[in-house]
Simulated scan of single mutants.
Amino acid sequence: MHGTGRYLALVSPLVIGLASCGASSSGEKASPAPADGFKTEAIAQFDEPWAMDFDEGTGILLVTERKGALKFRLKDGKIGSVSGVPKVAYGGQGGLGDVVFGPDVVAGGTSLDGRTVYLSWAEAGSGDTRGAVVGRGKLACATPLACSLQDLKVIWRQEPKVTGQGHYSHRIAFSPDGRYLFVASGERQKFTPAQDLSVNLGKVLRLNLDGTPANGNPFAAKGSPSNQIWTYGHRNVLGLAFDAQGRLWDLEHGPAGGDELNLVKAGQNYGWPLVSDGDHYDGRPIPRNSTRPDLAKPAISWNPVIAPGDFMFYSGTMFPSWRGQALIGGMKPNVLVRVAIDGETAREVARTPVEHRIRDIAQGPDGAVWLLEDGKESGAGRLLKLTPQ
């Protein structure tokens, strides 16, 4: 979920009954509850889409494709494209990543002309190295279906660039007051950087809107890049979202088991790779979160995993029973998961099987839920819209 106005998009010509209460962190599936169901409609098709964001002023939806294309959907369903997108290091988990409209909301209008956009992507370095970056630019639209990204400037980079093509994370969220930019930085499958405060890998970062370190960060006295760090001990964060109380949460991939939803608090250590509720892929055990009371514990964890794509907190009126809950798109298994928040803990209340892996999720201006399918499966990559059954 992006910033304060991140919305859902999902559509498929199916009617699905939501699974109801009782699904647990052990991966147990719940029984169906048709009264709490929804229908889906397939709205559009994209090539390996990764992220989306609605513009609050116009209702236009921006969508990134991992190979490096940026597209948008008008309210009438027409699809436009944006030129001037940066070259990306495509491969593995890398490519064009998140997209978020800046907090400078423009009311009304029918065009994206002049809107500030923040993008993340994987950038090639020297040798065989890569790293995530975040850039900021403005849209200039010559016609309703043709815009260009102008004055794009990289405002943040992962330090250092390393080998491999995984765990970039590079999700973006704005604080509810629009003052701060939060960036998720994965540990790039290198494990130990998550505990190293001299690098910004395996961290959640709090920045000013221009990408500079925000004042008051907990490790500012250690200098750069430690002065960017808000929290550490993260593995691969693929969701960042603020709840209605203004609290920041992250959604994180575990290893073999141990996916997590975390309440993100300044200065805390979230434990990776010291602890996890999962184990290494080769079967080697990892000490459980319960063994380290000095480290921050997840609000909920999943074992078996749900392999989350992204999540959001639902605030609309179209699904009143979902208000305040976290809606999570899963990629293993292919599911939509609903999680209720109880103070600083959470519990799964429902999961619904869906046809393909869900990469992103957003809430539309009218309160509909939108899903963006991951594009790796045959026939996937659709934009779906969920409305009440």
Results as ranks from 00 to 15, higher is better:
residue 89 A to D: 13
residue 110 T to P: 00
residue 106 V to R: 14
residue 117 V to N: 01
residue 123 E to R: 12
residue 107 A to S: 14
residue 128 D to W: 13
residue 128 D to G: 15
residue 123 E to T: 05
residue 87 K to I: 09
residue 92 G to E: 07
residue 137 G to K: 12
residue 93 Q to G: 05
residue 122 A to Y: 01
residue 100 V to A: 15
residue 98 D to S: 15
residue 136 R to W: 00
residue 121 W to F: 15
residue 123 E to S: 13
residue 115 R to G: 07
residue 88 V to H: 02
residue 130 R to N: 10
residue 108 G to T: 05
residue 132 A to Y: 05
residue 91 G to Q: 04
residue 140 A to V: 15
residue 138 K to T: 12
residue 97 G to P: 00
residue 103 P to K: 09
residue 95 G to A: 03
residue 120 S to M: 13
residue 140 A to K: 15
residue 99 V to T: 01
residue 86 P to S: 08
residue 140 A to L: 14
residue 138 K to G: 04
residue 96 L to D: 05
residue 130 R to Q: 11
residue 129 T to R: 02
residue 90 Y to W: 12
residue 139 L to A: 11
residue 137 G to C: 11
residue 137 G to D: 10
residue 99 V to N: 01
residue 86 P to N: 07
residue 90 Y to M: 00
residue 100 V to C: 10
residue 121 W to Y: 15
residue 108 G to N: 14
residue 103 P to G: 12
residue 127 G to V: 14
residue 112 L to T: 04
residue 96 L to P: 00
residue 109 G to W: 02
residue 98 D to M: 03
residue 135 G to S: 09
residue 125 G to F: 07
residue 129 T to S: 08
residue 137 G to Q: 08
residue 97 G to S: 04
residue 99 V to R: 02
residue 124 A to K: 15
residue 101 F to A: 00
residue 113 D to F: 02
residue 138 K to P: 04
residue 91 G to I: 00
residue 137 G to N: 01
residue 115 R to K: 13
residue 118 Y to G: 10
residue 134 V to N: 09
residue 109 G to P: 06
residue 89 A to T: 04
residue 95 G to D: 04
residue 110 T to K: 13
residue 121 W to G: 06
residue 112 L to Q: 02
residue 87 K to R: 12
residue 120 S to G: 12
residue 135 G to C: 11
residue 103 P to M: 03
residue 131 G to H: 14
residue 116 T to W: 09
residue 112 L to P: 12
residue 104 D to L: 06
residue 87 K to G: 11
residue 127 G to I: 10
residue 120 S to F: 11
residue 120 S to L: 11
residue 125 G to C: 10
residue 136 R to I: 03
residue 137 G to V: 13
residue 96 L to E: 03
residue 138 K to F: 11
residue 102 G to T: 06
residue 109 G to D: 01
residue 86 P to G: 01
residue 140 A to E: 14
residue 122 A to V: 06
residue 114 G to K: 04
residue 95 G to V: 02
residue 93 Q to H: 06
residue 102 G to D: 06
residue 87 K to Y: 08
residue 90 Y to C: 09
residue 114 G to E: 08
residue 109 G to E: 09
residue 118 Y to L: 14
residue 115 R to N: 07
residue 98 D to T: 05
